[in-house]
Write a protein that binds this DNA or RNA. Structure first.
Length: 419
RNA sequence: GGAGAGAUGGCCGAGCGGUUGAAGGCGCAGCACUGGAAAUGCUGUAUACGGUUCGCUGUAUCGAGGGUUCGAAUCCCUCUCUCUCCGCCA
C-alpha cells in the first residue's frame, strides 16, 4: 500500500513513477488525492464538534446541569454522526482504490512494459552439450519416478505424484535447501498451509488476485500460494519489533497452491506449472536503509543453491512493467532447460520496501519512535522446477546423474537408472 | 462440539458511570550522587489521524464491532481470541 501522506505531498511524482508500470494508475492517484482532501475537511469539522461535546460533558457537575445541555449535545451528536458516516464512506472509497494500486518501482528498475525489456544481469555455468535432450517428464516417466496420468484421475490436471527415487529426490532437495539456509543464519519455520484473507491482503495477493488462489469454502481461509505469506505476516501482530533484532532472516519449506487461472495452454506438460508444488522460501525483515543490501544477499543465497547443484542459470532484473504487485525491485533467477533450449524462472527475489509492511502494520521501534519495516522475499528454490532442471541438465542415455551436493541426502546414490 | 473463566500501556496490575489516556510496580531513557559501578534520588517514558505561529494543540483508541447515556475502560448486545474442565480425534 502506498503512503497516503506521501500521495498528498507528492501526487505528481507518484503519478510519474507509477505510470512506469501502467498509465492506468494515474487516474487512481488523482481520485485518492481528491478524496483525501475531502476527508481532511470533514475530519476537521467532526473533530471540532467532538471537542465541543467533550467540553460540555466535562462541565457537568450536577443532574440539573445535565438537563441544561442535553438538547445541545443531542444536536451536536447528530452533526457528528452525519460527519462520521461520511468520513467512513470516504475511507472505504480510498481503501477500495489504494488496495488495488501496486508498489512504486525503485529508481534502479529499468523502463519497460513486459519481459522483453528485462535486463540480464549475469549468466553463470556451462550449458550442457546434449545431442537430443529429452524433456524431464520423458526421462522421469521412463524411469518410473513421476506420474501424471494416474494422478490426473485421482485428483485432476496439473498435479503430479513423485515415486521411488523421484520422491526421495524431492525430499532431498527440500532438506538440502533448508540446510543451506540454516547454515547461512536463517531461522527455519514450518508454518501452516492455510492462511487468512487478512494476511493475504497484507502481502498483496488480495483483493486483486483472488482468482489465482484456492479458497476454502465457508471460511475466510485460503491455501497459501507461497510461504512468503505466512512468513512475512508472522510478526504483524501489532507489536513493533525492536531495532536490535533486525534484520530477521526466515526460511520455510511449504507446499504452494495456485489455481493458475489464465495460464490455460501454457506449460501443460511436466512439472513447470502445477497447482501444487514444493518451495523453500526466504524472507527478510529489515530497516529501510538496509533493504537494498539485504536484497543482494537474498539473491545470492538463492544463487548459491543453483551453484552448488551446478545448474546453469542467469539473473534477470525485471523492468517496471513486468514486476509483481508488491515488489519495488525484483530479480528473477532463470535456470537452463535443455529440452526447451531456454532459461525458465526458478526463483523470484523481491524487495517490497514498506509496501507490505504498511498493509500488515509491520513496524520496528527506534529512538525516534516506530517505523515501517522493509520486507523481502525470494524462492530458494522452487523445488519441482529444480527437480526437473536436474533431470534435464544431468541426463544420460540411461537416466540421470545426481549432483555431488545431494549425495549425502540420498545415501550416496550417484546415478538413477532404470532397474 | 458442550460448560465455565478471562482479555487494560513494553511487562505485571488497579479501576467497574464523570477531574482516568488511564493509579501503583517492573522495565527502559536522561540527570544527580561516584574514581567508576551498584544502590539511592529526581525527571521522563503508548499509538494513530488532523491542525499548527513547530512551542504546542484537537480527535480517537483499555481484544473487535455495535448500543444505552449529557458523559463509557466501567452498563447492555454480538463477535474474536486465550485459559480450565468434559467430549471427539491424527
Amino acid at each position: 500500500m502506498l503512503d497516503l501522506k506521501y500521495i498528498r505531498q507528492n501526487p505528481d511524482q507518484i503519478k510519474q513513477n507509477i505510470s512506469r508500470r501502467s498509465e492506468s494508475y494515474k487516474s487512481d492517484i488523482d481520485k485518492i488525492f481528491e478524496l483525501d482532501e475531502q476527508k481532511r475537511k470533514l475530519q476537521k469539522q467532526a473533530d471540532a464538534f467532538k471537542a465541543e461535546r467533550n467540553s460540555l460533558s466535562k462541565s457537568v457537575n450536577s443532574p440539573e446541569q445535565a438537563e441544561e445541555i442535553k438538547e445541545k449535545v443531542k444536536q451536536i451528536n447528530q452533526e457528528i454522526s452525519g460527519l462520521d458516516s461520511a468520513l467512513d464512506q470516504i475511507d472505504n472509497q480510498i481503501k477500495d482504490i489504494i488496495l488495488f494500486i501496486p508498489n512504486l518501482p525503485h529508481l534502479s528498475v529499468p523502463e519497460g512494459k513486459d519481459e522483453s525489456q528485462n535486463q540480464i544481469v549475469k549468466t553463470w555455468g556451462n550449458i550442457p552439450n546434449l545431442a537430443n535432450p529429452k524433456p524431464h517428464w520423458q526421462i522421469a516417466e521412463e524411469l518410473g519416478i513421476l506420474d501424471f496420468e494416474n494422478t490426473a484421475r485421482l485428483a485432476g490436471a496439473r498435479l503430479a505424484t513423485f515415486i521411488g527415487w523421484g520422491a526421495k529426490l524431492e525430499r532431498a532437495l527440500i532438506q538440502f535447501m533448508l540446510n543451506e539456509a540454516s547454515s547461512a543464519g536463517y531461522t527455519e519455520f514450518a508454518p501452516p498451509a492455510l492462511i487468512s484473507a487478512k494476511t493475504l491482503q497484507g502481502t498483496g495477493q488480495l483483493p486483486k488476485f483472488a482468482e489465482d488462489l484456492y479458497h476454502l469454502e465457508g471460511t475466510d481461509q485460503y491455501l497459501i500460494p507461497t510461504a512468503e505469506v505466512p512468513l512475512t505476516g508472522f510478526y504483524a501482530n501489532g507489536k513493533a519489533l525492536s531495532e536490535a533484532e533486525l534484520p530477521k532472516r526466515l526460511c520455510a519449506y511449504t507446499p504452494c497452491f495456485r489455481s493458475e487461472a489464465g495460464a490455460a495452454g501454457r506449460d501443460t506438460r511436466g512439472l513447470i506449472r502445477q497447482h501444487q508444488f514444493d518451495k523453500v522460501e526466504l524472507v527478510h525483515l529489515c530497516k529501510p536503509e538496509d533493504s537494498e543490501a539485504e536484497h543482494e544477499k537474498l539473491v545470492r543465497q538463492a544463487e548459491n543453491i543453483l551453484e552448488k547443484l551446478n545448474l546453469p542459470y542467469r539473473r534477470v532484473l525485471l523492468c517496471a512493467g513486468d514486476m509483481g504487485f508488491s515488489a519495488a525491485k525484483c530479480y528473477d533467477l532463470e535456470v537452463w532447460f535443455p529440452s526447451q533450449n531456454a532459461y525458465r524462472e526458478i526463483s523470484s527475489c523481491s524487495n517490497c520496501t514498506d509496501f507490505q509492511a504498511r498493509r500488515l502494520n509491520l513496524k520496528f521501534k527506534n529512538k525516534n519512535g516506530t517505523e515501517y519495516l522493509h520486507t523481502l522475499n525470494g524462492s530458494s528454490l522452487a523445488v519441482g522446477r529444480t527437480w526437473a532442471a536436474l533431470l534435464e541438465n544431468y541426463q544420460t542415455p540411461e537416466g540421470f546423474l545426481i549432483p555431488e551436493a545431494l549425495w549425502p541426502y540420498l545415501n550416496n546414490q550417484k546415478i538413477i537408472v532404470k532397474n
